[in-house]
Design a protein around this nucleic acid. Structure first.
Lengths: 354, 354
DNA sequence: ATCAGATTTGCACACGTGTGCAATGCTTGC
DNA sequence: GCAAGCATTGCACACGTGTGCAAATCTGAT
């Protein structure tokens, strides 16, 4: 402001002062100056496989340590156009299954030298499109969606920009996204078979009011299996996907029906159902057999010992990671459409097979 | 690159081809060309409060939509030196308390327009210093540490670079970090008083083998309170901080001592202890009273109904956020040292006061 | 029609880094 | 001693964006 009559040094001085005031990060230029080399040498020192003499490398590292230099990844990504960021979209992070999923994923990403940009979709009233857009602004390497259902338009935009979209237990029919889902249909069938083998004749299925593909697949597949056996299942499907809903389902269902077998599409619902059923005076598994889905840690606790269908967490994160690491080859890149196997974990909430 | 004899168009052609090959992101230059304006106009259109005519703004927005333009935050942060990233360090993300903490924090950050860079400290054998260093490379606005104990040297480096470090339920005595901890001492005292009021005379305290400040504070403060009442507490302190350790503690402790009151420094330990105690034939709360700490969701479940000391999650994330948003003023910036109040949640695992 | 003032626009530089290219220095073999 | 070859180094440009400054355009009042 008014640089007209100020002596030459002033602006640079002013600049220097400004720098001290707002900009405190050490740059490679600072390091270069202290080490008495060019900026290129500094850059090369921190670039694996670049050509630097041992002497220079040493001096640079020394100077860097003295000054506390950290390479600016923003600038580096800007030029190499390859940030090692991975965007992760998830909601209900405190629910045991989601929490474990995120724990494993974030750990695996770090192990592979990637960073995890976490976006909580809990308050995304207008869908997760805005979230994905904001992730895109970071030029991420890939986006993992564990919650919500992205419209295929935004997925196409990601793909057009060379960003893989990986849907975990989600579905987007004709979009160019990798999808990795556990075998809901198979799992539901296994649960039905187990209950039938236990001799159950009056069977219910408990879901929440959520209309997620996972919920629907499990519910429908189970109901179909029961009908195949000539029985008509009693369905509960309202409320949130929580422990409390499980309790309500038990109270509601058991008041009007004398069920002897129930499949809860989620362990959390299952645990609530167990508590609700006990409160209603049912003995488990003598009066009533219960099967869950997911195998969250709490299902193994002594007060529950819930028989359930397990999703292999290892397989899941493994598949996600290999999808991320697969290279993109333009639009027609091969997409993964994996369906991961599940297995029944026998505990104590289902009568032995007759 | 030999611009001497090559016709003018050639380089730009070659460049264009290169762009198509490796670089698929749309830039502001592309938008400007399509809209028939300068690149500055594009930049200003996406900068709130900048001076652009309605006409230009409209044309730019139209072009941006057609091309699918997203501003490159890396480049933006590079110049403004203000990324809205916040680094979060945490381990054991699947443990209920940590999961809830992360859920709330990530949600709050997003609501304030900040992004969450999540680093899982689970596999940080050599401490979390390397993690913090790598966060620093992203020029984050602040770092929230929920796990591990950063040496003060790295904290000082963060502060020197204008990056706030916020320790949640952690401690770093003389370092320049904001620390936000819940009132472990007060909570432990409340737990002790409650057990004493219930008439307990043979009292135990259960912790894990972890040497975290939180664990130690709670254990010591509780033991001191018990001793003040003229009793000598029985201490258990080994294993990981899990449900299973709680069971083992119950089996180990109850085999040799006839306890009538126990304080578990973590709800997870407490729930395990309850199941272990029941298995050992103790009736709760008739024979044995149990108090936990944290108030995780599972503590309210019907099979447990654990009386516990609650940390207010709202207060916690609120304090973290206000610390992040407080401006940095060089080295001598005022630091927060908050101790958040706790409260006893009465459920069903402690005998009524006599 | 003219001119002052306000608004809009484009130029050019800055941010911190990676890297091709040419120049420099060093080694080696004769 | 000299030339050839090779490792090392510095220069300069590129990445995509924000913004001060001056030029250009528009507005409105005389």
């Amino acid at each position: 402001m008014g640089p007209d009559k100020i002596p030459i040094e002033a602006p640079s001085d002013r600049e220097a002062h400004l720098k001290r005031a707002t900009r405190n990060f050490v740059t490679s230029e600072d390091v270069a100056r202290l080490a008495g080399v060019s900026r290129s040498a500094v850059s090369r020192t921190f670039t694996p496989g670049a050509s630097v003499s041992a002497d220079v490398r040493h001096r640079v590292q020394e100077a860097a340590k003295t000054l506390g230099y950290r390479v600016n990844r923003l600038a580096r990504s800007l030029i190499s156009d390859q940030s090692n960021l991975v965007g992760v979209v998830g909601a209900n992070l405190s629910l045991p299954f989601m929490a474990r999923q995120l724990d494993e994923l974030s750990r695996a990403l770090l192990r592979r030298g990637m960073q995890c940009l976490l976006l909580n979709a809990a308050e995304a009233e207008q869908g997760i499109t805005p979230l994905i857009e904001s992730i895109l602004e970071f030029r991420v390497r890939a986006i993992v969606v564990m919650s919500g259902s992205p419209p295929s338009s935004i997925i196409d935009e990601c793909v057009a920009n060379g960003v893989r979209v990986i849907l975990v237990n989600r579905q987007a029919d004709d979009a160019e996204a990798d999808t990795i889902i556990s075998d809901d249909l198979g799992g539901a069938r296994i649960a039905a078979e187990r209950l039938l083998r236990a001799g159950c004749r009056c069977i219910g299925v408990v879901g929440s009011g959520a209309r997620t593909p996972t919920q629907i697949r499990r519910r429908v597949a189970f109901a179909d299996s029961i009908r195949d056996a000539g029985l008509e299942p009693i369905v509960w499907a309202s409320g949130e996907t929580t422990y409390e809903t499980g309790i309500e389902a038990a109270k509601g269902l058991l008041a009007s029906h004398d069920l002897d077998g129930v499949f809860c599409v989620t362990d959390l619902l299952g645990l609530g159902f167990l508590d609700g059923a006990r409160e209603a005076g049912r003995r488990i598994p003598e009066d009533l057999s219960v099967v869950g889905f997911d195998d969250i840690p709490q299902s193994a606790w002594a007060s529950y010992r819930l028989t359930t269908v397990r999703q292999s967490m290892n397989d899941l994160t493994g598949s996600v990671l290999s999808a991320i690491e697969r290279e993109m080859h333009g639009k027609g890149t091969a997409l993964a459409h994996e369906i991961l196997p599940v297995e029944l974990v026998e505990r104590a909430t289902v009568r032995p097979a007759t």
